[in-house]
């Protein structure tokens, strides 16, 4: 009897430790990713110099006298993300409001399925369609020598962030208490006025979360952008061929060596810092949202 109890207690202890280890895994992975990125990203920055690296305007990694300035990539990623947010958020928000408050039963569920499907389409498929459909069309429409540019990339990114913007803001809008709406309606506001002036402002923190998520998605997208942005390391121009932070890493990695390879890791580190900042902002917003409830 005593013996059984002892083995049982041992198993309990072992299982507890096992689960504890599983629980710690995510922390371990985050530390692992950070350590590997920092240790492989720092050497090149030391050699090139932080200022030259971040604010250098030319990237010529394979030239005889190579120069490693990533300002073009940083600015392109910033502009591209801002563009996608400026176009995508209004459309996404209107669609979310429609889904949450105004849509007739049947139509609402159809649109919701459409949004879910859009979210499930792989990014290379978006890239392919952008490459074959959007790029030639942009070239024709604006009479350009080549349609693979920042503008095309913004169009593709806009479509790619729509699903996450829509579903997160829809959830936020739906979570606004019914009383707010009833009070506004009782005061004589129309349904549309109520939704836009009472419900949407009340869902502000959730909507900001959606926007920040959209920023994160746009800044981290690599494959689709690589297929439509032209991929030349120019300073960003709306109708010029550009390279993003993500595509800078992806496009040279397969044939790089030496300092060039190290510099690519440094670009990844910069991208990682961007993403971590966005995550931090997201957490702060969510936390503040919890406090005000």
């Amino acid at each position: 009897m005593n013996k059984i109890k002892k083995t049982a207690r041992l198993i309990e202890k072992a299982m507890y430790l096992l689960f504890l280890m599983c629980g710690m895994l995510t922390i371990l992975f985050v530390i692992l990713i950070t350590v590997f990125l920092v240790t492989s990203g720092i050497p090149a920055i030391q050699k090139i110099g932080l200022f030259n690296f971040l604010f250098g305007k030319t990237w010529a990694s394979t030239a005889v006298l190579p120069s490693y300035g990533i300002l073009p990539f940083i600015l392109t990623s910033t502009y591209g993300t801002c563009g996608a947010i400026l176009v995508g958020v209004p459309i996404g928000l209107l669609c979310a409001i429609f889904l949450a408050k105004m849509s007739p039963q049947g139509i609402g569920s159809i649109v919701r399925n459409v949004v879910d499907l859009l979210a499930g389409i792989p990014s290379v498929v978006y890239g392919l369609v952008g490459m074959i459909l959007i790029v030639p069309y942009v070239r024709e429409f604006f009479h350009l020598p080549d349609g693979a540019n920042l503008f095309s990339a913004i169009l593709v990114l806009t479509i790619m962030i729509l699903p996450s913007v829509i579903s997160v803001s829809e959830t936020a809008i739906k979570a606004v208490p019914k009383e707010y709406e009833e009070a506004s309606l009782a005061l004589g506001a129309t349904k549309t006025e109520t939704v836009f002036k009472v419900v949407v402002p009340a869902a502000k923190s959730g909507i900001i979360t959606a926007v920040v998520l959209g920023i994160g998605r746009a800044i981290g997208e690599a494959m689709a952008v690589m297929m439509v942005a032209g991929n030349v390391a120019n300073m960003p121009k709306l109708f010029g061929s550009v390279r993003f932070l993500t595509t800078a890493v992806a496009s040279e990695m397969s044939y790089s060596s030496g300092l060039q390879r190290q510099a690519l890791f440094s670009i990844a580190l910069v991208l990682f810092l961007f993403i971590m900042t966005i995550n931090l902002v997201l957490n702060l917003i969510v936390k503040r949202g919890e406090h005000s409830d």
């Binding site: 995510t26 992975f29 692992l32 990125l37 992806a250 890791f265 991208l271 990682f272 993403i275 966005i278």
Partner: peptide, 19 residues
């Protein structure tokens, strides 16, 4: 742990590829 999980979910796939 939950914070770490959210962080992992937010890291773009190109960084995963590199790491």
């Amino acid at each position: 742990i939950e914070l770490a999980t959210e962080t992992l979910a937010g890291i773009p796939s190109i960084i995963y590829g590199l790491v």
